[in-house]
Amino acid sequence: MPDLKINFCGIEFKNPVFTASGTYGFGREFNALYPISLLGGISCKGTTLAPREGNPPPRIAETPSGILNSVGLQNPGVEHFINEDLPWLLEQKTGIIVNIAGSTVEEYCEMAERLSETAVDIIELNISCPNVKHGGAAFGTSCASVTEITGEVKKHCTKPLMVKLSPNVTSIADIAKSAEAAGADALSLINTIMAMRIDIETRRPILKNNKGGLSGPAVLPVAIRMVNEVANAVNLPIMGMGGISDWRDALEMLLAGASAVQVGTILFNDPLAPIKIIDGLNRYLKSHGIARVSELTGAVQLW
């Protein structure tokens, strides 16, 4: 049997397949279809200090091989998560990444401190949400602000801190280096790509928020390129995401330099996609005589 286990930030996960923040809630709805213990883990819905109502609808638009979304971080707040969702999640025996977002550095720090007291595995610093007016991507699009927020949050965080990067930047490798220098333990990328669609009859954007984030198979090649650039620029473990739909895509992401992957948009089409990806990776390792999945990380040979 090939070994799908990975060690990510010193924590062992049963396989490298996670579900991406914002597509999987806190896991309950999918656990009704299959046990989420099969996953390497889940990255929970982006959580803020206080509950948030999110953006007005419509919040989604279909695009060629993808979707735009603009949910705007609707969530019940970090205390609700800790009291109502986390106890259930801990019983499910799956890896737990908590994605945190804030509108000030202080809010991020407070959440990191609070979550460090719990049994979550990793804190994912969401400085790349394109759908909120304050904070969000504003923190993630300049090297100076990435350095500042990563450094500050790190002081309040005793869990591994994984910084989630925005693709809406000139050089994602430079941003990644800033996060590394400021003490990030891992990186996750990419968040969604800023995009827009217009209804040709009403001449209005389809999304009420005008703009939203593009995700789905359409963004996979962008994500692969960015993960590879970042992998070549830093010495941090990477969780790669962006348009992964099947095990071949996941494998590409690992070869590009990721140690683990997150699967998101495809879940809306096939809730079982992560399970099929785990199976597919297993079969690939077996048929290629590879002992451990971790051997694939960064194994691409550039020309």
């Binding site: 914002g22 597509t23 999987y24 809630g25 309950r28 709805e29 999918f30 009704a32 819905k45 999110g54 953006n55 007005p56 609808p57 419509p58 919040r59 989604i60 638009a61 979707i67 979304n69 949910v71 609707q74 879940l267 809306f268 809730p271």
Partner: peptide, 16 residues
């Protein structure tokens, strides 16, 4: 009706 994503209550897209 509202434009929908996952359909099972996880993605929070179809808000009203």
């Amino acid at each position: 009706e509202e434009r929908m994503g996952c359909g099972i209550g996880a993605c929070l897209v179809c808000a009203c």
